[in-house]
Design a protein around this nucleic acid. Structure first.
Lengths: 219, 219
DNA sequence: GGGTGAGGCTAATACCCATTAGCCAATCGG
DNA sequence: CCGATTGGCTAATGGGTATTAGCCTCACCC
């Protein structure tokens, strides 16, 4: 019954019904980005190892193996997502610090940036934190290094503020962890169709953080 | 070449070298609990779907299939871990609230209990939060219900405090989320061989939470 | 002192999944 | 217009994994 090598009535493939654009103005049809986006949503909702290539393909109307015409591996998708997330977080943090101001203002800025990113890009952030262990070396170590760098900025600022007697808190270690974790938590529950915008939330959390540190009123 | 039914030189099994105890005083040798403990550590470090039955068996010096003499399925292990965690959290929270006191004291208590549990039982807590999506229905829904109940207590207390003008905070919703998330974060980084004990950390975080809420000094 | 049950073992079952191979149609640059 | 490239497809590959089946041995009880 095997119809091996028979070319007659085989069901064959009809490529994308919508016309393909040339690589000029390919922006909206960049398959690579589309795949990353689809993977991101799936990784966030059912986890990296819970997501199959076939599911990612489904989102784009294609089969799992076809993805390999555009990407190298499933792992590559995760690496791109996570490094993209850390790079962007660090970039924004650096920009915030570059604006200067006194310790309270700078701390408030990096908290705001932290929270805003975790709301705006909740999927990237969620995956970036949850799936670090799914990264193969050396990516895992690299990301952990970046994260340590990112986190140390919070601690440094808290220390600085304490040194200037602008913050009253028993431990800069625990309070900076608390601030970080409350921001990370946002990525787990933030709902973009809810009533609060990322920047409103960022402002609220910055205020909470300053109060938590017992910041002296700076006016 | 198949040696089917040949009984000659087959390698066979030598059961546990250490003498087995009778079921009297079996406490320290309860296989079921040993399995749960081994699974817990593995689930926490490499994730539920990343853990194989063979790995769990390894920890106890046995093969994967042998586990089924003591448990029903891998899923059962996760269910027991996660429901055990939520039950204990709720139990402790109820006990804390039962002690009464003014809003500040009660809020402080449930924060302390929350943090203490997340430090003392960081693996349970970590798995309990991270692997909820690995639970099959109806367990998943049940756990989510319990979690909603647990979380609502925080929000209710913040609201109550605001109503009495004891807390100054713009939103009881966001501030209770922040408090919850900073406690949950503890389970991701707490190191039991570090210098801070769970109850010290609990006290510190309770203080941070009250300050975050702008609690009026209650002395 | 033999039967029984508990608790190991290995082998087999019945999946699922990432990735590769190899085929083909349509598009596009010349 | 043609021939190479692009980007789909299906089928095959190679591996992993939870769970079940069936076997065996020891410890214990009578």
């Amino acid at each position: 019954m095997a119809v091996r090598n028979r070319l007659t009535g085989e069901r064959t493939h009809v490529p994308s019904a919508v016309g393909r654009r040339s690589r000029v103005a390919s922006g909206p049809h960049d398959r690579h980005h589309e795949i990353i986006d689809a993977a991101l949503e799936l990784f966030a909702t059912i986890g990296y190892s819970g997501t199959t290539m076939a599911q990612i393909g489904d989102r784009l109307g294609m089969r799992g193996p076809s993805l390999y015409k555009h990407i190298a591996s499933k792992q590559e998708l995760l690496v791109e997502i996570v490094t993209g997330m850390m790079d962007e977080l660090l970039r924004r943090q650096r920009a915030a610090l570059a604006e200067g101001g006194d310790v309270r203002q700078r701390l408030s800025s990096i908290v705001a940036v932290h929270v805003q990113y975790h709301a705006e890009h909740r999927y990237e952030a969620f995956v970036g934190h949850r799936e670090i262990d799914s990264l193969e070396e050396p990516h895992r170590s690299h990301i952990l290094d970046l994260r340590r760098e990112y986190e140390s900025r919070f601690r440094e600022l808290v220390q600085e503020g304490r040194g200037l007697d602008l913050f009253r808190t028993s431990s800069d270690r625990w309070s900076s962890y608390a601030i970080l974790d409350m921001g990370i938590g946002v990525s787990a529950w933030y709902n973009p169709s809810g009533s609060v915008t990322p920047d409103e939330l960022a402002a609220t959390y910055a205020e909470l953080a300053l109060r938590m540190l017992g910041a002296e009123r700076g006016d």
